[in-house]
């Protein structure tokens, strides 16, 4: 039986999803509402004796925040905290997380050439991608604010942020496409050919192929940098720029000496946010090369040990390596956030 071109099985799936959404929301509302009603009933205020009323009210306000927080803490605990502890533990256990093997996993992973290749590549990604995104984003933010079609331009630059890493990989693979023979249907090779160069295959060209993969992430993330920096630039007081203009500063001086220092905090935020994203980059490498031709990165190497290598211990060690790399930024973020609260 078909309805609107969808099979019965498809309608079954849609029905299942719809019922699940409703069920999920009903359970949530039921919990929050029910828990509050129970709390009010269990510790009522309308009893005789003022002393008890005040006592109950205090107890209620001590308990209520935890009722509000409980589901969130449960999820965070189960899906982030518990796994974090277990991963640390797993890194000292064998293949199936059964017996203790000391530091063997760490020693093994650190002896693998592929691991150090991944570390080297991740370092290159960390150096190139955040810098390129921030730089390009800043340039576009500054320039687009000076032209009448700037909003439109920014939307187009921003657009790739909505595209999945896999989708972006396919899009760029088409750009890098190489065919033997005269006809090149890949844009890059066609341009190379137009300028008299020889078409080449870019994806399996060791070392340089890393940069062709990085371009994909730069393409996606520049819009992010642009939007955040554009907002920060608009927050710069006009007077500072006017004063510099009166003092005879030229455009570049104003940009580097007046504008950039004032948005340095935001630049740092953008830089660190993209750095974290880069450390976790998986989909692009997995889709384009799966780590072949010297393009391995940590997240893909971790996935390799998880699925094909089927070794929980090694996989945990690689995952923890990513975590250790993220740690300094995490601490910096937490300190920034607490400072903001202090001043605000």
């Amino acid at each position: 039986m078909e309805l609107f071109g969808l099979s019965q099985a498809a309608w079954g799936q849609i029905g299942f999803a719809s019922i699940s959404i409703v069920a999920g929301i009903v359970v949530c509302i039921g919990y929050f509402w029910g828990a509050n009603v129970i709390l009010d009933k269990a510790l009522p205020s309308d009893v005789t004796g003022n002393q008890l009323n005040v006592h109950n009210e205090n107890r209620r306000s001590a308990i209520r925040p935890w009722l509000f927080l409980f589901p969130a803490l449960l999820f965070l605990g189960l899906f982030l905290f518990y796994p974090l502890v277990m991963t640390i533990l797993n890194s000292f256990l064998d293949k199936n997380s059964e017996s203790f093997v000391g530091l063997n996993n760490w020693a093994f992973v650190f002896s693998q050439a592929a691991f150090w290749e991944a570390v080297r590549n991740n370092l290159m990604w960390i150096i190139v991608v955040p810098a390129a995104c921030t730089f390009l984003g800043l340039i576009i933010a500054v320039l687009a604010d000076r032209i009448w079609w700037g909003t439109f331009a920014k939307t187009l630059i921003f657009l790739p942020m909505a595209i999945s890493f896999v989708g972006a990989s396919v899009i760029w693979k088409f750009i890098y496409e190489f065919q033997s023979g005269d006809t090149q249907i890949g844009l890059l090779n066609a341009v190379v050919q137009f300028f008299g160069g020889d078409p080449t295959s870019y994806i399996d060209m060791p070392f340089w192929n890393n940069f062709f993969l990085m371009i994909i992430l730069i393409w996606i993330q520049t819009g992010f940098a642009m939007v955040i920096l554009s907002a920060a630039l608009r927050g710069i007081p006009e007077e500072t720029i006017e004063a510099a203009t009166l003092d005879g500063a030229n455009g570049f001086q104003i940009f580097w000496k007046i504008m950039v220092p004032q948005i340095m905090g935001t630049v740092m935020v953008v830089w660190t946010t993209i750095t974290i994203l880069v450390l976790k980059v998986f989909d692009i490498v997995f889709t384009m090369t799966d780590g072949q031709w010297d393009t391995q990165v940590l997240a893909n190497y971790m996935f390799f040990w998880l699925v094909r290598g089927d070794h929980d211990g090694y996989s945990s060690v690689v995952a923890l390596t990513i975590m250790i790399a993220v740690l300094p930024i995490m601490i910096w973020n937490i300190r920034q956030a607490s400072q903001d609260k202090g001043t605000g």
């Binding site: 796994p83 997240a299 998880l306 995952a319 923890l320």
Partner: peptide, 28 residues
């Protein structure tokens, strides 16, 4: 809301924002 431990929970959430997903995969 006011209660002990609020600042700690907020800081923890800021920290969890950047925890790599990769860490959660195997145990989950």
């Amino acid at each position: 809301m006011r209660y002990p431990g609020r600042a700690l929970i907020t800081a923890t959430i800021v920290g969890l924002l950047v925890v790599p997903l990769q860490l959660s995969l195997i145990p989950l």
